[in-house]
Amino acid sequence: MATSSHIDRDLDLSNANRGVWLVKVPKYIANRWEKAPGDIEVGKLKISRTPGQKAQVSLTLSPAVLSLGKVGEEDIPKDHRLDVSIVTQQTLGVFSHMTPVSTDSVVPETEKLFMEGRIVQKLECRPYADNCYMKLKLESIRKASVPVRQVKQLDRIVQNYKPVSDHKNNIEYAERKKAEGKKARDDKDAVLEMLFAAFEKHQYYNIKDLVKITKQPIIYLKEILNEVCNYNSKNPHKNMWELKPEYRHYKEQQAEVKKEESDDE
């Protein structure tokens, strides 16, 4: 999914001609609407036209939404008026981005983009300054004025860090090491086999990693490495071993490898 968003997708333009309204609503209404289930009516929009006058648009929240609030919450105003204005100086469009809900479905859904329309009108939802709204504002102001941090007296020392003499991980590691025992010198051919296999995957290895891979004592390993490998003492690939040119046959980037060699030497 991470890479799929970089693929360019067609924008579904079937709704591009549709004119939509952009409505700015107070946060408290948005909160309620978010909680409301999708199938109920959350409010009513009234457009009353009087000839010779501007149309009046108003919003009335449904009782279901009004009653959605928690117990301690203030009531929110029921009626709002909507101020209509047109969009100037810019072109506004609405598009939607659909991400697949469940990725485990048999036919994997791809992300889809839809053009939802262009914004033709801007509406601003404003509450009437009645008692209910004032109460709401008062509450919100009171809440905002409460400091986030408070002073509290402690009667006991709070200890949140205890030093540990030997961590659990360390003990485990030591035990494992003990179980393994000392590294034994293997047959040279076997070691070489392992080395070549490793160098097939990567070109450069640190000595520590090779010790881990081959499980040979470091002195013995170094003896073998000196035979078949070159040691890089300079950047880039400082302190790394690579196979001598006669032992390796990397197919691609052969030229580059050679160049690097010459750089290293």
Partner: peptide, 24 residues
């Protein structure tokens, strides 16, 4: 005045996210 009334719903069906594109 002539009054038109529309009911408003807030559908929650899809994982559809709406964005605004703004052009000068």
């Amino acid at each position: 005045p002539t009054v038109q009334e529309y009911s408003i719903r807030v559908p929650k069906s899809l994982q559809k996210r709406y964005h605004v594109m703004r052009f000068n």
